[in-house]
Design a protein around this nucleic acid. Sequence first.
DNA 1: CAGCTATGCGCC
DNA 2: AAAGGGCGCATAGCTG
Length: 780
Amino acid sequence: MPALFDVPKRASKAQDIAIAKKANSKSKTATKTVKGGISGRIAEIKAMVETNLGKFKDDYIIIQEEHELHNYFVECVANNVIAIDTETTGLDPLQDQLVGVCIYTPSQPAAYIPLNHKSYITGAKSNNQLDMKIVREEFEKLLKYKLDIIMFNACFDIRVLRNGLGLKDIYCTWDCYLAGRLMNENEPHRGLKPLHQKYCLEGKGDAFSFDSLFNGITFDLIPINTGYLYAAHDAIITYELYEFQKPYLTPGNELCKEYELEDVAWVFKNIEMPCIKVVADMEDTGVDFDVEYCAKLSEKYGKIMDEKLQKFEELCSLYQTEIDTYRLKHIDSKLSNPINISSPTQIAILLYDVLKVPAVDKKSPRGTGEEILIKIADKEKGSTLSNLCNSILEYREVAKLISTYIDKMPECINPKDGRIHCKFNQYGADTGRFSSQDPNLQNIPSHNKDIRKMFKATDGYVLMSSDYSQQEPKVMTQMCGDPKMIDAYKHGKDLYAEIAALSFNTTYDNCLEFRPDGTTNPEGKARRSQAKSILLGVLYGRGVPSIAEQLNVPTKKAQAIKDSVFKGFPAIPQFEKDSLEMAYELGYVTTLWGRKRRLPDLQLDEFEFRWKDGYPKDDDPLDFELEFDETIGMPKPVEHEVPEDIQERYRKKLSKAYFSQKRAIFEQADKEGIKIVDNGAKIADAQRQCVNARIQGSAADMSKLAMIKVGNNKRLKELGFRLLIPVHDELIAECPKENAKEASELFAKLMSEAAEDKLHIPISCDVEITDRWYGEKVKV
DNA sequence: CAGCTATGCGCC
DNA sequence: AAAGGGCGCATAGCTG
């Protein structure tokens, strides 16, 4: 079965991501100043919309009277379904304005309900817009019918309707964004319009892009008579995308079966859809923030940064002669004066050109990353060079804290409530994990004990954090099904120590860091960490040399350790094998709950053969019949394949060749006019991903199930408990102090039970109760 | 000027 | 010969 959605070939993953982001963002720079005057831009927009959507003029309507809205909703009830999309002045549901609501139900024209349009000349609110209160009340009546509600990226629209229209009970039954992610997480287009164009218009729709159309103009300034065309169009294409998706994610439907999506449909209905409300609640709640404390941190770390910079400059001055000599020789060097410590380019010049430090890493011979600088520093401890490298590292550490966290966070505070409301993308990672942005609350430093304390409980509340200990190893144990590993957890043993004991033929106690009398046991510690490295290495698809480096043992030794562990726990390599086979045969791997991670790269041929010019070297490029392709409006490019026997010849050679010989073979082919594409790296990437995606994805499923249970628990709600941040295997929440004891116990219980249908390993969650994130424990 | 890539680094 | 999964975001430096 081919992948459901075709993924176009692209130059790079980074490019894909850039494209996806572009498609996903609705014009971030909505409030910047407009060049050429507002009226000019609006005329331009008017013309663009006319040209591209004018044909829908009579198909879409504007709702400006109460009875019109009422009648429309009557039809929605009759159809038992409505698609909803909102138009706003920006992407922040708390600070930006609701401008209008777009609705659609089959049999009716798509409709736009303008609410807050205003004149771009006078700024006065435009006439003929329904009162928000009336619209809210009509919607409230509509919601009582529990009809299906279709949205795209529902979390946003739900929050907009809650905060902008006061529609507290708005819900969604089908989110086309989440459905699309589940149907193909590799889809580079994540926005509504590109998805609709690709799957509902078979890519044939007008390539007209709205991406930059409204740049610099907020939607409230667009005249209603222009705006309604654009807005109403969104509601109808949301519905059309839903119609396309629905059979694939409906269990029992032929298409759902054919594409093996029945379990995915389960995940959609029971994990992703219920998660939306929980996420919307978290984003609306936000986290309280201590500005005064933050200001103190800024001062403290600002001073440290100055000191670190000074230290760097002093150390540089010891090399003044060398630097001066270099500058004289290389007039147009990028080396500024003084040297910019933040510039990797300049640090590379300083180290490798001025100071002639030999490269320590073959992969990046001019690298200046942390690991490389540590290697250089360790070569001659105490030397000026070593001090210099350390000073760069120390500067970077504190500069990162200041620029990304300490001085950034205050800019993110919502002035209305003094809290930080980030955005969570519940399908941020292709494995199903969450991501967080604006700001990212999932990468706040934890090693540093100051930074997290900026985040505090609301006054009268306490913070609660509860994490799954060893979530991923436990998931892996379940998926391997190894009885010895399961037993280790059932008996409350340390898994890594148990693996070490059974693999290295020694006792469990000999594989612990501490002896029963409390003294340290270095050999035990080493055994345990060796077993741990192997297990986590499997989890991440880590290679033996890399594990060797981590354990500080020769590669051969690391291989021997791995062999022992695999011999003692054959279920582990079996799981690797099964996962690979699953991916090779089906093109995807699955999580415990049935979420898919497609890995099409795994099915690539190791080598692909193409004629460099698109045709054989001695061919006349015009010597063939052109076939007209109507979809692109021009003759089809003709593909000449490299004959199978030539491919076979090269494949045979390459299979026997060592790395160093491959290049020569590629060059030889090049002379024949053949380009050989080496997919080895891509395939290796996919191989690593296939084990990891199952574990990481299952853990994500589990965490989401927990969020849903916790977020919807009636008793917790009564206690005033509310979730704040999911950090993968950990949930941060807050609760009124007087209810903290009961809430924390229930919190831990719900979390530990959340995955019990599929995960038969004891799960316990400890709840920490504090006044601030990582702060002092509070007694309750 | 915006928008992009490269490099580097924070988290799980 | 090399060999680590998943994110978001900062700065530098280039390009159109």
